[in-house]
Design a protein around this nucleic acid. Sequence first.
DNA 1: TCCTACGATGGACACAGTCCAAGTCAAGAA
DNA 2: TTCTTGACTTGGACTGTGTCCATCGTAGGA
Lengths: 140, 140
Amino acid sequence: MSDLLERLRGRGWRMTSQRRVVAQVLDGDHVHLTADEVHARAAQLLPEISRATVYNTLGELVSLGEVIEVATDGRARRYDPNAHHPHHHLVCSTCGTVRDVHPSRDPLADLPAEERFGFTVAAAEVTYRGLCPSCTQAGA
Amino acid sequence: MSDLLERLRGRGWRMTSQRRVVAQVLDGDHVHLTADEVHARAAQLLPEISRATVYNTLGELVSLGEVIEVATDGRARRYDPNAHHPHHHLVCSTCGTVRDVHPSRDPLADLPAEERFGFTVAAAEVTYRGLCPSCTQAGA
DNA sequence: TCCTACGATGGACACAGTCCAAGTCAAGAA
DNA sequence: TTCTTGACTTGGACTGTGTCCATCGTAGGA
Ligand SMILES: [Mn+2]
Ligand SMILES: [Mn+2]
Ligand SMILES: [Zn+2]
Ligand SMILES: [Zn+2]
């Protein structure tokens, strides 16, 4: 993710402390933060960063294909920096935790032509729902 | 869907004109309306119905398993009365149209044990994204 | 017909996201 | 190094979606 900053500079991005901090917050594995969570963490590193800037930067990263937007519930969208490794999501129905998963088959292959209704189908996202280990424990 | 009202009566539901109208609006195939769309249509049949009642009724129908909530984008949730016939969704990225589809394989079967990370996985939803016939045309 | 607990109502509130006018500053030019 | 300028940031207003609650109304049993 640190080469992300390089790539962005290459694309003509002006490097501001705000953008650096947002990129830093998004660094890591299994990061699926909401915009407000990104803002909260960014504000610990750069207290005066505004919500609008976080939204702007996230939106730009999404347009550039560097970050993926995931809508697992009807709540806040989550931002996923793991954009260059296709994967799907396993979501805990109780606590909302999100994990990356890699199914053994591409679900696109399992949608027959007669089930496409003339659509030009570009992608398939799978959301697996269940209980994470600690919520399974708690519910038992 | 008309037997829905019977089932609800059986469950001890008090039959009000508001609930009848919401059920009526949800009747049909490929219905994937937002709460506000349900409210708008219901209000044509029963002008004084309130938004709160529509939300309450939809929420109850979801808890009873009679209606499914779908979050295709980060926008408004959609309500799907086709709850007794498992299916997935094909969404137009441009206009938001939603179609029911039936893949040839259950995606749950394609998530190997070592990709479950201790979760108790209960269900899998697939969202296929692409362009509907008319948006494909328009974009060409 | 009467009672009353369940349901409906509308308005306030909370949360997620967008938009804008004004101020600031990164980075190229000189 | 300083200057200049347009891209970027900011706070706050605004919209859309959803929840909550006190109060009122009524479905349906006695
Ligand atoms: Mn992910
Ligand atoms: Mn459906
Ligand atoms: Zn959990
Ligand atoms: Zn379309």
